[in-house]
Structures are given as structure tokens and as C-alpha cells.
């Protein structure tokens, strides 16, 4: 039980990744596959951010040392814990995963845009966004000669 409680995030991330991948692999619809991919990528973000959370921590925006705000944040924590893990009397969460996931989110939206743009062109060329129908229509090409320039 304590494992489930302390690792709940990772279990949820695993389920979300499975759901995203399942949509990508099982759905024949190109748009739906892109949604699955986006779910999968967001789940990666949840995973990284879970890694960087520190109990009793605050967002990694540095508070002026000895300011009332810093003292207020410090007062909530056990002094021994604070002494070991605090920086200038405040405990912060890890900034690194935040930075990495910011980048990953941006990459994700870039992929989504390009993927959907291609899907729109697939619809224009084949009249369908269902993988099965596209495959049937593609077979015509392999029996036809190529276009002449």
C-alpha cells in the first residue's frame, strides 16, 4: 500500500502511456492516432515532473533569503529536513525536469502540427483518413507506371 501511495504517479504515467500507445497502434484514423501520440507525449511530461518534485518544496523561483516569504515557507518544514535539503533556508523542487519538459511540449506541438498537415493532404489525395482505405487505394499505384516529366 505504501508503495502504491508513494509511486502512484508512476503507475498513472504507465497507464496513460499505455492508453496513448494503444490509440496510436489500434486506431486506423490518422487524426485519432495523432491524439494518441499527444497523450503519450504528455504522459512523458508527467513522468519527468514527478521525478523533480521535492516534498515540502516550492516552485524553483528563488525567494529572497530571510524575506518574510522565505520565513513563511521555512516555518512549514522540519528544521532538520530544511537544513539538509534547503537552499538559503527554502526547499525548492527540481528545476531541471521543468526545463526539459518545456522543450518536450514544444517539440510535441511541432510534431502534432506537421502530422495533422500531412493527414489533411492524405485526405485530399485519397479521399480518406482511414489507414485501411488508404492502403487499398495505394495498391493501384504499384501496378501503374510512374508519371513522365
Amino acid at each position: 500500500m505504501s508503495f502504491i501511495l508513494s509511486h502512484f504517479n508512476y503507475i498513472a504515467v504507465a497507464v496513460l502511456m499505455m492508453a496513448g500507445l494503444f490509440i496510436v497502434f489500434s486506431s486506423g484514423n490518422l487524426i485519432k492516432r495523432m491524439i494518441g501520440l499527444a497523450i503519450f507525449q504528455t504522459a512523458t511530461g508527467l513522468f519527468y515532473i514527478s521525478l523533480g518534485k521535492v516534498s515540502g518544496g516550492t516552485a524553483p523561483i528563488v525567494v529572497e533569503p530571510n524575506s518574510p516569504e522565505a520565513r513563511e515557507l521555512a516555518s512549514r518544514l522540519d528544521p532538520a529536513y530544511l537544513a539538509q535539503h534547503g537552499v538559503d533556508g527554502v526547499v525548492y523542487s527540481n528545476p531541471l525536469p521543468n526545463v526539459l519538459i518545456l522543450t518536450a511540449i514544444v517539440v510535441g506541438v511541432a510534431t502534432l502540427a506537421v502530422g495533422l498537415a500531412i493527414a489533411v493532404r492524405v485526405r485530399e489525395a485519397f479521399g480518406s483518413v482511414e489507414a485501411d482505405e488508404i492502403e487499398v487505394l495505394s495498391r493501384v499505384e504499384s501496378t501503374q507506371p510512374g508519371p513522365r516529366a
Binding site: 496510436v24 490518422l30 506537421v114 493527414a119 499505384e141
Partner: peptide
């Protein structure tokens, strides 16, 4: 796709697999 429209589903497929690989 200007020469062969199969380029479009092929590119889409590559995008899906490539992104899964990178992720």
C-alpha cells in the same frame, strides 16, 4: 506526393514511428 501520392501515408507513418522512437 507530386510524383507518387503514396509519399503522404508513408511520411505520416514515418512521423508516427519516428515520434514514438524519439519519445
Amino acid at each position: 506526393e507530386k510524383r507518387d501520392r503514396r509519399a503522404l501515408p508513408a511520411a505520416f507513418n514515418y512521423l508516427i514511428m519516428g515520434t514514438i522512437g524519439a519519445t
